[in-house]
């Protein structure tokens, strides 16, 4: 512990505070603008209103519902697809497993706009799929699956799950019993962190969704872009406020879950 009036410490503190100000300032501006009657005249002069929030719900309620629905569906899909993969990768430490892991992570390494375009080119003409919300779901699962796999895999590896499983086997537990009594409970911190990550990413996904969506399947971030482009600043701000109210609790929970999953000591 160094003394706090060390000039190096002060310089660092000032610098970090300035950066924090740069990051948080606009968020505060946005929240205030969302409840200001007239942003041009300022909040003090024009007063506080919830009218803009009301307008947002009138205009964009379906986008919010659709985004929440897609986020939940994405979560279910990544749980079903991703958790077994993480388990298998942890148990099969070979060249083939590393290759499979590499392949699974690929979708994250390629920009969403490229993946979105590829999906449209390959599947856009197949029946009603293009206009159905599951088209967006597919894109979101593609993009979030690696996060579920990696988060779960990290915890499984750290928990020395293969050794625990051998112990359970030696005590007579078959595959299913092991999976339920040993694997799932010990992987749960990673699964939880992965789940929060998946929901957070799905709620905010834009790069791919802008291409994938149709007028019938507009998600929250696409709606945000629409409001920024064609509505008053106050409506855009109010809509952003709604989004932040959904997102920030998820981010806080995610931080908590990630700390728990990595077993990091709580910071003072």
């Amino acid at each position: 512990m160094r003394p706090h009036f060390d000039p190096g410490f002060l310089a660092g503190l000032v610098f970090a505070s300035l950066v924090a100000f740069f990051l948080v300032g606009p968020v505060i501006l946005s929240v205030l603008a969302g409840v200001t009657a007239n942003y041009q005249r300022g909040i003090l002069e024009s007063g506080i209103t919830l009218a803009w929030l009301g307008r947002v719900f009138e205009l964009y309620a379906p986008t919010i519902a659709l985004s929440l629905g897609i986020a939940l569906a994405t979560l279910v899909a990544t749980l079903l697809l991703g958790v077994p993969v993480a388990y298998a990768l942890a148990k099969a430490p070979g060249r083939l497993a590393r290759l499979a892991e590499e392949a699974l992570v690929m979708p994250v390494a390629i920009p969403g706009i490229a993946t979105g375009l590829a999906l449209i080119l390959a599947w856009g003409a197949v029946g009603e799929f293009r206009t159905h919300w599951t088209f967006i779901l597919v894109g979101h699962v593609l993009f979030t699956l690696p996060f579920m796999v990696r988060s779960t895999l990290a915890v499984i590896l750290a928990a020395k799950l293969p050794a625990l499983e051998e112990a359970a086997r030696s005590l007579g537990a078959g595959f299913l019993a092991r999976f339920v009594t040993i694997v799932l409970p010990n992987a749960s911190p990673g699964i939880l962190a992965g789940s929060l990550m998946v929901v957070t990413l799905s709620l905010g996904e834009f790069n791919m969704t802008l291409l994938l969506h149709t007028p019938f399947t507009m998600t929250l971030p696409v709606g945000l872009a629409d409001s920024y482009a064609s509505m008053r600043l106050e409506i855009g701000s109010a809509y952003t406020l709604v989004f932040l109210v959904l997102l920030i609790p998820l981010l806080v929970a995610l931080q908590w879950a990630a700390d728990r999953a990595t077993g990091a000591p709580r910071r003072p």
Binding site: A159, K160, A163, L164, E166, A167, A168, S170, G172, I182, P185, N186
Partner: peptide
């Protein structure tokens, strides 16, 4: 039906 004691004990943390 063997009983096994592992090097790092492999006790179930849950």
């Amino acid at each position: 039906n063997v009983g096994m004691v592992f090097q790092s004990y492999a006790l179930f943390p849950n």
